[in-house]
Design a binder for these strands. Sequence first.
RNA 1: UGCCCGAUAGUAUAAUGGUAGUACGACAGAUUUUGGUUCUGUUUGUCUUGGUUCGAAUCCAGGUCGGGCAACCA
Length: 558
Amino acid sequence: MTETKKEEEKSLNFLEEIVEADLAAGKYSSILTRFPPEPNGYLHIGHSKSIILNFGLAQKYGGKTNLRFDDTNPVTEDTEYVESIKEDIKWLGFEWENERYASDYFEQLYKFAEALINKGLAYVDDSTPEQIAQQKGTPTEAGKASPYRGRSVEENLQLFREMRAGKYPDGAKVLRAKIDLASSNMHMRDPIMYRIKHAHHHRTGDAWCIYPMYDFAHGQSDSIEGITHSICTLEFIPHRPLYDWFIEKLEIYPSHQYEFARLNLTYTVMSKRKLLQLVNDGHVTGWDDPRMPTISGLRRRGYTPESIRMFADKIGVQKRDNLIDVSLLEFCVREHLNKIAQRRMVVFDPLKIVLTDYEKGEEWLPSEDNPEDPETTHRQLPFSRELYIEQEDFMENPPKKFFRLSPGSKVRLKSAYIIQCDEVIKDENGKIIELRCSHLPESKTGGAQANIKVQATIHWVSIPHAITAEVRQYDRLFRVEDPANEEGDFKDYINPDSLQVISAAYAEPSLAKAKFSDHYQFLRKGYFYLDKDSSEDKLVFNRTTTLRDNWVKEQKKA
RNA sequence: UGCCCGAUAGUAUAAUGGUAGUACGACAGAUUUUGGUUCUGUUUGUCUUGGUUCGAAUCCAGGUCGGGCAACCA
């Protein structure tokens, strides 16, 4: 009920309005969108906005979505990327109707090009790249015609066929559309349609040595598939007249292009080119480094598809440039993980405690796996006389608002007893190496003293039962909000402390059975996820994100 | 000094001529066997100048500011 109400109240974004209007007007009986990545890099969170938009729009209005790889530039593209892109889309929770490639249409596109030549709307140009740039003029100055612009249809046809046949080397000739060299839109000043590249293509192999440019491939591919709404980012706005021009002159199905603002996130970069540099220069370990904003990086770090979809829903879709605070993404992942994460106890920086009055040897105490879940399961935690707690949970001379353990004070050990610190043991340098404590024997859950109020509950592990694990704690990759727009090289703003490794944290033994299907909350520490670097004899956990921490804020104020 | 987009709290996003609302953040408090969660409260906004109108964030005009466009990239 509430869900439906919320749905109704939620206002439409501008694309949903367009689709609803088109559907209401009977322009289409159902819609077909497409997600068109170039397989030259891994998908990032910015792409997930586009994926969720394209697939989500179709889902909402009973339509379908094609996955189409825009593979018109063989020198940068590779099947490695095709595979990762498919995996990422599936992981986000979407299914495409058809898997297509722009390269599927190379023959058709070639025929389209000949058709334009026959109409006198395209010509083969022998000019060099420099000459073509010269001819284009500037935004304030009209361009000039190439000396080859007046070639006859027959000559153009013959030369274009020779281009295809491999008669010319790379760069010797191009095919250009004959449009308007005086247009105020630079993209209409006789844009290049085909260039010669004697390069191996990841799908068509060596069948072709001429390849269509984006502008001559994208709109026609949309048209061939019958895409109703072709949604892309803002920088393609000036391409739209060209998109429409090719469709009009070719007299083919009129797909329409719409544009939205791409996602930008604080403290990271969002371009494949820059991400590739981080990988190639070794600033990160790979495309799936958990610090990367790639979908594979976020997945490895422990983000969930649900959290990313919630994020996309919250940021909305608009045409204004934006820089979204990464704290919103963190909020979304905490929101989801709080509901599903299994609670576990892990001590990162141990301080030994001896319970001088504990005589039992060992006992096993139940602890809930997730207090947010009313049907939570419980696991058994081993308890003993010797425990580790966190160094930071003890202070010999505590400031006013310190609620944890200090000499003479009491704290509760989560799911176990209330303890009190009786004696502080130091080494010859005065460093605290051990605490002697006593416990309230009736204070465990359900006991007579269980309801005694103490200022804090802290986590712990039993020393004889503890296992060790490597813990990788991540921080933002950059020191500044918008590294791409800072002076100089964006790499100068990399955060040198973006990774902090604890090689041996002490964990409760149940974590020996950690699984990739589970997300964990290490109590009072944050959310963690098993890393693929784990092996039989070594556990590795990635910190997905910290818990919100008011104590840290309190300390900063002081 | 051409053309094209855009402009609502710190950040995003609604209000489609009729009470400027929501989320995140920040701040304060309550609850709590996680300084988590949950709950309550507070804070801050229509780029500007005119015009149309009973009434303008919304429509019109001028200005300002931000972004994009001159790859054989997509």
